[in-house]
């Protein structure tokens, strides 16, 4: 049994136990969390707009993503034309051009949004879509990752992800290229 062998070796060899530190939240509570969030997101090549600035979501989508055919939307104000009930397997979503989801949380220090499997509807949606749009309430932005992990409960979800911008790579001579294997663009719409 490898398990008992490994655990026995660890028991024999492990160093003296030490105390686990208490991690403070390092909060400074700035009053411009939405601006900090937008700044961090833009630095990671993401877009950030106010939801209020969008009068007609359908027109906005057409203008923002010209030539779009397939839209999967989990946000009721944004009309999609793909019915989630008809999705039987993840690969059925491979033709999605734009996906629109909610996010439960945003983090000001790095511009990420927390999207769990409930918000994403199908786990692969935020990744397989060509373009991702996420709707986030301004009051759901926290200052840093410590506060973020206080807000979310990992045990209550099967999958969740912090997304900080469009898929990118710098693997070829460190040239930054947006649109590696995941979404080519990442837009957060701030509401409230």
């Amino acid at each position: 049994m490898s398990k008992s062998e490994i655990l026995d070796r660890i028991k024999r060899n492990k160093p003296q136990p030490s105390t686990l530190p208490v991690v403070p939240d390092f909060a400074t509570s700035p009053d411009n969390l939405d601006q900090l969030f937008a700044g961090a997101l833009r630095a990671s090549k993401g877009y950030c707009f106010s939801l209020d600035s969008i009068e007609d979501p359908e027109v906005w989508l057409k203008r923002q993503f010209p030539g779009t055919r397939n839209i999967a939307s989990a946000v009721k104000d944004f009309p999609g034309n793909v019915a989630f009930e008809e999705i039987n397997k993840p690969s059925d979503l491979r033709m999605i051009d734009v996906a629109i989801t909610h996010a439960q949380l945003g983090v000001a220090e790095n511009g990420t949004v927390w999207v769990d499997e409930k918000a994403a509807v199908v786990r692969i949606l935020p990744f397989i879509t060509q373009h991702l749009v996420v709707v986030l309430k301004k009051q759901d932005i926290v200052e840093n990752m410590h506060l973020a992990y206080q807000q979310i409960s990992l045990s209550d979800t099967g999958f969740g992800v912090f997304i900080g911008g469009p898929s990118k790579t710098a693997d070829i001579e460190q040239s930054l290229v947006v649109g590696a294997q995941g979404a080519r663009s990442h837009t957060v719409l701030l509401s409230g």
Partner: peptide
């Protein structure tokens, strides 16, 4: 690693799909 504030995707896998 690269100076980014966080990786683009930080994925938490808890349960099978």
């Amino acid at each position: 690693a690269t100076g980014q504030p966080i990786t683009i995707y930080t994925s938490h896998h808890q349960k099978p799909k």
